[in-house]
Amino acid sequence: MSASGYLREAPRRYRLEGAACKGCGAIHFPPRAVCDRCGGRDFEARELSGEGELLAYTIIRHPPKGFEGQAPYAIGIVQLKEGVRVLAQITDCDPAELREGAKVEAVMRRIREDGGFIEYGYKFRPA
């Protein structure tokens, strides 16, 4: 990962900055160029609450390159209270005790070190 490519996404990664469509009010994360509900192209930045519910999860036992030291770790789909769905690691948990439907909250954590710098991003932890 390049430094420029990393920092470009930082507002999303550090504080879940999404976008609200000015046309229909749909919330998107990540922000989109075109609203897939109404086709609108005007948005305003909207920081998401980070509060949500775990819809599905799995435990990664054979991680991709760059994540080797972290396995086993949990990955889950979280439905945020704004209705947006995001995919992220579930941290600060015993993966064996995770359950669908669990309440979770977003935190900023270290994701990996790939380009010689530390890459941070959102994860979720049991609330």
């Binding site: 030291g69 972290q70 690691q89 941290t91 600060d92 935190v107 900023m108 954590r109 270290r110 994701i111 530390i118 941070y120 994860k123």
Partner: peptide, 9 residues
């Protein structure tokens, strides 16, 4: 700290 935490997080 957990493995994904540091002074910044």
């Amino acid at each position: 700290c957990g493995p994904d935490e540091d002074a910044i997080t």
